[in-house]
Design a protein around this nucleic acid. Structure first.
Length: 536
RNA sequence: GGGCCCAUAACUCAACGGAUAGAGUAUCGCCCUUCUAAGGCGAGAAUGUAGGUUCAAAUCCUACUGGGCCCA
């Protein structure tokens, strides 16, 4: 709907003017409104209200609008004809599952279909998946759905950090459970300073148990660590499956980069491009060290090799990385590094998932792998269920700190908005159950009441919401929309009876409206990855 | 010491630089002989402080205050 209004505006105003059209928040401002007159006012040096009046006069001729009005200080407000809504309602019923799909790819592709690499979660396989990983996990999963919905080709990828010190440490920690004396010997020779760096906690016990550590003959911490990593990766995959988070590619740092010599190749590539310098025995790119003075490569170089692989070897148009807040300080360096690879900056989108604070009993619960005090993804899913967990995380903008109130989430009550949205769906199902067979001929002109119009206005928003979110990645817009749509449906449900009213024709028209609502809710839930309950 | 994120109602969060700052929870009224009250209707209640830019600032800029994170 927004696109159609925009294109009408485009025809009558100067090219290149930024056009914003939004659903109006107040009834007196119409169904949709635009501030384009303000934009024109500054370039044309005329009062915005004057321009708005001219635009309104011209657009009133359009067949879609009941009324177009200029409002001071310069807004143009549009009222849709009911027929325009009825047409859209027919589209919903006709397109069913494909309603909301758009062929207007967003900024990632400049109108073209893009090959997108979306890398998320990527938690180190040195511990179980924690609740905090859920934020980026659910967000990434849904963002992938949204991008696919507008036609992009999306690869969902998990970067497995299975090289380096932490694997060694993990092995050492397990060995410490069985043969602490051997660990003492190793630590005496190894540069790692003391035992304090060992991973502790219940999961090491569990892991040691799972590996049969009591019978471990292996004494090489690195080898033990690699075995443990494989085990943990299996657990992580199982947790993600439970959470409904899907991946296409598991990219092993060790296998795909280190063992193939990709770090060296990337280093040479960078040297040829220029900007690499030797200083104090180390190799630098800008303010980041690529190779340390002891000859060992850094994570920075590994990450650049990884992005070399994404952009140059696998030829992705766009790479989206979702990182935890603990890496945000690294973002700028990474962006510059990728630019040094010759990749234009707008092809790399690094999104930072801000910290999740776990709150219980009004107090913060600290999460720490070292101390073994953390809530795992599995525990969270068990306590609150997949739907509530997903919805709760997805309600919040990614870049804001959020509190996860464990007590509230545990309550499994109507306090959680996911039930509110799902209940609207259940109500639609219940109505439709009573009308068999579904009427195929109906007169939508009969839908004129306030709550019917409002519901229709919400229903037709889905394509706009999805298209916009594919551009700005503000995934939480979808959960907000789910709540608003459900509210409009509940309101309609209370105000207007559908089945068993005397007027057969009106009943048919309302049934069509209800089935359209069911379709839109279904499509929305599919993208959000939450279930579509038949009853509650 | 350097860098980053955040600050909106009692609480958790929304709001492309736009109109009277929206929801949910909590509180207080009203509504179930009718498609499930896990619902509807209504009330009170908010932009941390001080400047600046703009026709227009919660939003952008500067300083400060208060939370938090990363690096050293």
């Amino acid at each position: 709907m927004i696109e159609s209004i925009k294109s009408k505006l485009k025809n009558i105003i100067r090219e290149g003017t930024e056009i914003n059209v939004n659903p109006s928040e107040k009834e007196e401002f119409g169904h949709y409104s635009t501030n384009v007159a303000f934009k024109l006012a500054s370039s044309e040096k005329r009062p915005p209200f004057e321009i708005a009046k001219e635009l309104a006069a011209e657009l009133s001729e359009s067949a879609d609008f009941e009324k177009v009005e200029a409002a001071p200080p310069g807004f143009v407000n549009f009222w849709l004809k009911p027929e325009a809504l009825h047409e859209e309602l027919k589209e919903i019923i006709k397109k069913k599952k494909s309603f909301g799909r758009s062929n207007v790819p967003g900024r990632t592709g400049k109108g073209q279909v893009s090959k997108v690499n979306l890398e998320f979660v990527s938690a180190n396989p040195t511990g179980p998946l924690t609740m905090a990983n859920g934020r980026g996990g659910f967000y990434g999963d849904v963002l992938a759905n949204i991008l696919e919905n507008v036609g992009h080709k999306v690869t969902r990828e998990y970067y497995v950090n299975d090289a380096g010190n932490q694997v060694f440490l993990l092995g050492l920690s397990i060995l410490n459970k069985v043969a602490p004396e051997k660990v003492e010997q190793i630590l005496a020779k190894h540069p790692l300073a003391d035992k304090a760096v060992l991973y502790m906690g219940a999961y090491i016990d569990a892991l040691a148990g799972a590996l049969g550590a009591g019978r471990l003959r292996e004494e090489d911490p690195l080898k033990i660590g690699k075995r443990a990593t494989r085990q943990l990766l299996r657990d992580i995959k199982a947790s993600l499956k439970k959470a409904g988070i899907k991946f296409d590619v598991w990219f092993s740092e060790d296998k795909n980069l280190h063992r193939k010599g990709e770090l060296k190749k990337t280093l040479n590539f960078l040297k040829k491009k220029g900007g690499v310098e030797e200083k104090d025995g180390a190799t630098w790119l800008g303010d980041g060290v690529l190779v340390k003075s002891d000859g060992n490569p850094t994570y920075f170089l590994a990450d650049l090799a990884y992005h070399y692989d994404k952009f140059i070897k696998r030829k992705f148009d766009v790479a989206i990385d979702i990182w935890g807040a603990d890496h945000h300080g690294y973002k700028g360096r990474m962006e510059k590094g990728v630019e040094a690879l010759g990749i234009s900056p707008e092809r790399l989108k690094i999104l930072i998932a801000q910290l999740v604070r776990l709150v219980s009993g009004g107090k913060e619960v600290r999460m720490s792998k070292r101390k073994g005090e953390f809530i795992t993804m599995d525990e969270l899913l068990e306590e609150v269920g997949v739907d509530a967990a997903r919805f709760f995380f997805l309600m919040h903008s990614l870049d804001t700190h959020m509190d996860f109130d464990l007590d509230l989430a545990k309550e499994r009550s109507q306090k959680n908005p996911v039930y509110y949205a799902q209940y609207a769906y259940v109500r639609a199902i219940n109505i439709l159950k009573r009308a068999n067979p579904q009427p195929t001929i109906y007169n939508l002109q009969l839908l004129t009441s306030d709550s019917e119009i409002k519901l229709m206005l919400e229903l037709v928003k889905l394509p706009d919401i999805l298209a916009q979110t594919a551009e700005d990645y503000q995934v939480h817009r979808l959960t907000k929309y789910a709540t608003e749509l459900a509210k409009a449906f509940h309101n309609f449900y209370e105000k207007e009876r559908v089945v068993g009213i005397g007027d057969k024709e009106l009943e048919k028209a309302r049934l069509a409206l209800v089935s359209a609502a069911k379709i839109v809710l279904e499509n929305l839930f599919t993208i959000l990855g939450i279930s579509k309950p038949k009853k509650m």
